[in-house]
């Protein structure tokens, strides 16, 4: 479904992503794990067109994505929940969801919002509230709901557990599992390797911009090198 082939991304003279290639197949949950600064978010931003790779190619559903402007990527079926959630803090919950459906025909919006409220009942309670007044967990739900409004084929989640209490992290991951079971393909970026690998079919381990290991989720969870580096065992 998504094929990233040999990308290299730079911030000025800093070489942030080095020769990275990976694939996500239909229906899978794939995770990119790695420490802070490993280049995980950079990879997602490159896939969604906010950053550019100097080399290689990005192919999504058989179409080349490199060179496509960021605002046209979502219409191809790829939604990106950015790091730090980045909901529109001064807009209401419902307006945020409407923005998520910006590229959809307006007759579909009401149904989409109803679907999101069904999955996240908390958002329905707060529909008229300004997003800036939501808790971190609620904002994460809103960011995910907003991305689902575009009816994506592939959902990219960047650090959904960041800054959340353990109980909320459990909740968010339960939702990720549900979405997966409902057939959504997910590319998950996480520092919380244990949680990420527990829901993932496959994982890629990144170290300073380079993929160092790959394997099935459960396999990596028991991989000694991974354990040592990321799980503190």
């Amino acid at each position: 479904m998504l094929k990233v082939n040999n990308i290299n991304v730079y911030y000025g003279s800093i070489h942030a992503v080095k020769d990275v290639s990976f694939e996500v197949h239909q229906g899978e949950v794939v995770t990119l794990i790695g420490a802070n600064g490993a280049g995980k978010s950079t990879i997602l931003q490159t896939v969604s067109g906010l950053l550019r790779s100097k080399t290689g190619s990005i192919e999504f559903l058989g179409e080349q994505l490199d060179g496509v402007p960021a605002h046209k990527v979502v219409n191809k079926g790829l939604a990106h929940v950015p790091e730090g959630r980045r909901v529109f803090l001064q807009m209401t919950v419902e307006e945020n969801l409407e923005m998520g459906a910006y590229t959809r025909p307006s007759i579909e919006i009401a149904d989409g919002i109803a679907d999101v409220y069904e999955r996240f009942p908390r958002l329905k309670e707060r529909r008229k509230q300004i997003a800036g007044t939501l808790s971190g967990g609620e904002q994460q739900m809103l960011a995910m709901g907003r991305a689902l409004m575009s009816k994506p084929q592939l959902l990219m989640l960047d650090e959904p557990s960041m800054g959340l209490a353990p109980l909320l992290i459990e909740q968010i991951f339960a939702i990720i599992k549900e979405l997966h079971e409902a057939g959504t393909t997910i590319l998950l970026v996480e520092q919380n390797a244990q949680m990420a690998l527990s829901v993932a079919d496959r994982g890629y381990v990144l170290e300073t911009g380079r993929i160092v290991t790959t394997g099935a989720g459960a396999e990596l969870l028991n991989d000694d090198a991974v354990k040592k580096a990321y799980l503190g065992a």
Partner: peptide
Amino acid sequence: KMGKAMRACSEDKGAAQLMGI
């Protein structure tokens, strides 16, 4: 829709682009 997109852009251009604006 245009007006709301304008508010979205004024708050966070990157996130607005991810919405397709």
